[in-house]
């Protein structure tokens, strides 16, 4: 039997393939970031629960704060200074979760609120500090160096280890080149995007596990990926003009977003039909912001915008109750 706690644990466990791939390709910074965010999330949750006079230990045990921290840690650039990660995580727990009433009552995905907040507040750190794959760093960043960058102590300079992600790079580089020239750069590796392809496949595998365990249903990931694919084929069919489909699916946070962020049940639509619309909306927004906006990856904004549409979707996508001719709509005022 599933319990809320077990659902959270399964989701955490399902991030493992992706997490391991991230650590493998981008170094210890990922693990430090994840552990830090989880710790901050739980500490913040405990503090707020104490202030709100709620049972601290029992509520912490539900695992929701730890999961928020984990998801945020996976989203943030691994070499981000500790205090930016702290701001993101504390905002996620305080602003996005507890100010709305705590677990189950939040309108927006907490992790994405934290992410979006630091993305607009510290755009430079958030977009340029993605670690290069370890194999491309001249002297691969070790555990101690990672800690030193993270804490700001010590002498390790971050610039030698960071760069733009393939998704970001392609979008700008293609303006003055053709596809083969752009993808000749080492960050694209031999296939689609060095390291990223495995990270995305890892999250895909974890997501399929969640569907198999019936913790999430297929509706949101399928409609999200379907809509993104449709948009990429419709508007970005020419790789010499725009980012190709392969990069959209496997180079950014797409799989992570489709299976672990968009499927957060609290802030997603609930009826099966609602989930299809919700996922499709995220897919369309994802492509729109990536192609015509200024953010290279856009999972956070796409998800937050569709969070806004959830009450509406829930009221207008009800299934047909058995015994009724047609599905009910709307809600009485």
């Amino acid at each position: 039997m599933l319990t809320s706690q077990r659902i959270m644990l399964w989701v955490m466990a399902a991030t493992l393939p992706g997490l391991l791939a991230l650590i493998h390709f981008f170094g210890w910074g990922v693990l430090i970031s994840v552990l830090w965010c989880m710790g901050v999330a739980m500490a913040t949750e405990a503090l707020i629960l104490w202030i709100r006079a709620r049972p601290v230990q029992r509520t912490l045990m539900d695992g929701s704060a730890a999961l928020t921290g984990l998801l945020l840690g996976l989203s943030l650039p691994p070499l981000l200074p500790w205090w930016i990660a702290l701001v993101a995580t504390a905002s996620a727990i305080i602003l996005a979760k507890h100010l709305y009433g705590g677990l189950g009552s939040n309108l927006f995905n907490p992790a994405m609120v934290g992410y979006a907040l630091v993305l607009v507040s510290f755009p430079e750190a958030m977009t340029t500090r993605w670690a290069l794959p370890l194999s491309l760093q001249e002297t691969p960043l070790g555990l101690l160096d990672s800690l030193s960058v993270f804490t700001g102590l010590g002498s390790a300079s971050v610039d030698a280890f960071t760069g733009a992600t393939p998704l970001d790079d392609y979008k700008h580089a293609i303006d003055g080149a053709v596809a083969s020239q752009v993808t000749a750069a080492p960050i694209y590796g031999d296939r689609i995007a060095l390291g990223w392809e495995w990270v995305n496949l890892g999250f895909l595998a974890g997501g399929l596990l969640l569907i198999q365990r019936r913790i999430i249903t297929w509706h949101i990931p399928v409609s999200l990926l379907g809509a993104l694919t449709f948009m990429a084929l419709l508007f970005g069919y020419d790789p010499d003009q725009s980012v190709p489909l392969g990069l959209h699916l496997l180079a950014g946070g797409t799989m992570f977003g489709a299976f672990f962020i968009a499927t957060d049940p609290v802030s997603a639509a609930t009826s099966n039909r609602g989930k299809l619309w919700y996922g499709a909306g995220i897919g369309v927004l994802l492509y729109t912001i990536r192609a015509w906006g200024s953010y290279p990856d856009a999972v956070a904004f796409a998800v937050l915008l569709m969070n806004l549409a959830v009450p509406f979707l829930d009221y207008y996508t009800r299934p047909r109750t058995r015994g009724h001719q047609r599905a009910g709509r709307g809600v009485p005022s």
């Binding site: 029992r58 189950g104 299934p319 058995r322």
Partner: peptide
Amino acid sequence: IPQPCIRCGLCEQACPVDLL
């Protein structure tokens, strides 16, 4: 002890009348 509803939708998948 009951915990908050997280809108996981398991109930919706189980309902034999297709309610929410």
